[in-house]
Design a protein around this nucleic acid. Structure first.
Lengths: 215, 215
DNA sequence: TTAAACTATTTAACTATTCGGTTAAACTGT
DNA sequence: ACAGTTTAACCGAATAGTTAAATAGTTTAA
């Protein structure tokens, strides 16, 4: 009997090896910049095996996207629901997003490219997942506003602020550390994040939409 | 005598037509997803003319990037310097960025892809421009902190917040309006931006880093 | 003024290569 | 013998880049 994959994080079957390689290459080079031959090479399999196991480029990309972006929605909804106060719900929401990005280092690149392309390659399933995440945020903001703890906000703007901040920071801050093109004088003046990214972002966002001292 | 280009915004010369078309196509499809034939077609010229006028794909892309991202730096530095108080400087900074994006609708897509690709295609000139913009922000934050009006922030996080918010909102909000994949129930619950994007972002960011009632 | 000579620009047609996808044969375990 | 899986070799379309000839515009010279 063939050795079965008991530990999903340590893929020993061919399809998982391919998906893992594909995730890395798609994140690095985007859809058009990714070549099937390179994925096969990085996965250590023949290209025909790739087609046998998964299918064509579109299908492979859809799998990667789903693996990276899907399955976040449910976790967020559950975790947010466990918190009581709107502030705690919002912090929980941000925690989940940061945790998802930490678990999936390819997420920022893939999401940014997908946004840049107007979601041209997004499968329906994933689009639904994203919408679901968004609706959780809208509910939290709405709830907080009704309870008088949040100001009257533009939900899409707050969403852009949370996502934009997390994704940008995750992508830009390593570039800076690699000193790729930022002059040393700038790095010297930079401060390290004091705590967890989720906590820092939570502080900023909560303060920004706090009702107490609204202008 | 050949009709000369007196009004730079109404390009009548071949190179400008090509650059304009290239800007649109690169923004829409990214570097690898863009084909020289399509640019030539959209510019209404023969592909060989494109090569004669500008050069190969890398050169063309570098030109587009420079046109879109370059030349922002100087304007920002000047405008920010004219403001007195750190709060006004920061608002001016944000105003400039939003104005730049408004003037250059292709900027969000191109910047996002460039960030996603770790700036792989960025010419040195443009990298320098970006660093210069960043240093303006760092100085403003530093100044505000010393004067006791801003909290002690992580500059790169604030930068990510400003850029991320603007770029994401600019890209995501039209997607939503086109109803591409966001369900109608979400759109219904959304609020329109009350005022200018720059003003709204300015309010949020200033409140987020305001010293008065820091936790 | 005119026509020849010359230069800059544009074009259709072509080439070489890359790349997504296929095929038929070989290999593996049951 | 047989089903599941992998592979080397191959195919055709797409695509970055080239070439040589045609065209348009400018200068020169009588």
């Amino acid at each position: 009997m063939k050795k079965r994959n008991t530990h999903p994080d340590k893929p020993d079957n061919t399809a998982d090896k391919i998906l893992k390689a594909a995730r890395a290459v798609f994140a690095q080079n985007g859809y058009s910049g990714t070549h099937m031959d390179e994925i096969a090479r990085r996965a250590g399999v023949n290209k025909a095996t790739l087609y046998y196991q998964i299918g064509d480029k579109d299908t492979l990309y859809a799998n990667v996207i789903h693996q990276v972006l899907g399955n976040i929605a449910q976790g967020i909804a559950e975790t947010v629901a466990q918190a009581e106060k709107p502030e705690d719900k919002l912090q929980a929401y941000i925690n989940c997003l940061v945790a998802a990005v930490d678990k999936n280092p390819e997420m920022p690149s893939i999401m940014m490219r997908e946004v840049a392309a107007d979601g041209a390659h997004l499968p329906q399933v994933v689009a639904h997942d994203i919408a679901s995440v968004l609706s959780v945020l809208i509910n939290v903001l709405d709830d907080g506003r009704k309870k008088g703890v949040f100001t009257d906000t533009t939900p899409f703007l707050v969403h852009s602020m949370i996502m934009g901040t997390i994704l940008f920071y995750k992508k830009v801050s390593p570039i800076k550390d690699r000193q790729a093109f930022i002059p040393a004088s700038l790095i010297a003046r930079d401060r390290k994040l004091k705590g967890d990214l989720a906590v820092e972002v939570g502080k900023l966002v909560l303060k920004a939409i706090d009702k107490e001292r609204s202008s």
